[in-house]
Amino acid sequence: MFNKTILAVAFSLAAWSAHAQEHPSTFIPAGGYASTTGAQYIEPSISKAIQPTQKISKLTERNFAGDTVVQKLSEHTYWAQTGFYNVVFYVGKDGVLLIDALSDGSGAAILKAIASVTDKPVTTLVYSHGHADHIGDAPLFVESAKAAGRTLRIVSTDKTAEKLAYLKSTLPKPTETVAFNNGEFKFEDLTVRAMGFEHPAHTDDSAAWLLVQEKVIHAPDIANPDQMPYLAFGGSENYTYLPGNLQYIANADWTVFSGGHGNVGARADIAFMQSYTQDLEAATGNALAKVDAGQYFKPEFNNHQASAHAWHEAVIEHAMKLLRPKFGHYYGFEASVPNQLDLVLETLTSYK
């Protein structure tokens, strides 16, 4: 997804508020956004675990206001969000396990969030995948551990370590790796499992990370709970494998889902995404049948790329009209769904 620097430049709170006053209905449906799963909205709590039917209230407003939200998920595990990005951390007997470090200064907010729960240092950091917007502030946690007299343990899958090496990443290298396909490591008494996707959609090293005993799963950019997916499915490299990735997560043993963005998630959020992708494909198929490509491939367009672009736009417009009655009142529909339809269109027209 976007990094926080871009967010800060493009959507300062003052600019966003001014835009909202001038264009009150640009993106917000009449009556406000609806919950994608019919959730009950609650105030965040570090002492009371959230239930599968609950979501954090006013999450968009809290993010735009610069707040950091902390929510207890299970006996030892917490969820923290700042700048529309979230992490998961586990408080052990001797230290804290953190999945993802965020970037562009957000790591400092996460350190404060952890300090609001415990005075124990972060001793283990997991790289969920190699995208810098989720792990770019790793050096801050190296220094924080050092200040506490500890050496930070950094864990990733072998695929993420390989990807970072290939890219000549300047981020701290993992101190140890686990197998991409169901590799495990221990953090005190907790088992942490890397559930690498057989065919990842987001990026080639994308994995879901399962805190086994806590039944919490963290899989960035696969689903944004209580929102439509972000732009092109969170910057996914392709759509083709996304339905399979969602089914893989659905088949796992967990109770709470963390998507790296959006609200705290539950099984209903994965079910929503599975239903949504089916509707995307159906709407795109309908549009392909209704929109005649031949009318756009004419000499007056001057080149075939312009023709293809016009045809794509017409297909997407038709599909948007089909989807709007069901999904138009959800957060992100108007801004993001055209990008998703474009990816679905590429998949449906590329394979037979």
Rank of each mutant, 00 (worst) to 15 (best):
N3Y: 15
N3D: 15
K4A: 15
I6T: 06
A8L: 13
A8I: 02
W16G: 07
Q21L: 14
H23Q: 06
I28C: 14
A34R: 14
S35K: 09
T37S: 15
G38N: 08
Q40G: 07
P44M: 03
I50Q: 10
Q51V: 04
Q51D: 13
E61P: 05
R62L: 13
A65R: 13
A65V: 04
G66H: 09
T68E: 09
Q71E: 04
T77F: 05
W79I: 01
Y85D: 08
V87N: 10
V88Y: 00
K93I: 06
L102H: 05
K112T: 03
K112C: 08
A113Y: 05
A115W: 04
V117L: 03
D119R: 13
P121K: 07
L125R: 02
V126K: 14
G130I: 00
H131W: 10
I135G: 04
A138W: 04
A138S: 11
P139D: 06
K146S: 14
A147Q: 11
R150Y: 03
T151C: 08
I154K: 07
D158K: 06
K159F: 15
T160H: 05
A161R: 06
E162T: 11
K163R: 14
Y166C: 05
Y166N: 13
L167E: 07
T175A: 08
T177S: 13
T177W: 01
F180T: 14
N182I: 02
G183E: 03
K186Y: 01
M195S: 12
H199I: 06
H199F: 12
Q213V: 01
A223I: 07
P225Y: 05
P225E: 05
D226K: 08
Y230H: 11
F233G: 07
G234T: 00
N238G: 10
Y239T: 01
Y239R: 09
P243A: 13
G244V: 01
Y248V: 05
I249Q: 12
T255E: 08
S258T: 00
G259V: 03
V264T: 00
A271T: 12
F272Q: 02
Y276D: 00
F297K: 03
F297P: 13
P299R: 09
V315S: 11
I316P: 00
M320R: 15
L322T: 06
R324L: 11
P325V: 04
E334M: 10
P338C: 02
N339S: 08
E346F: 03
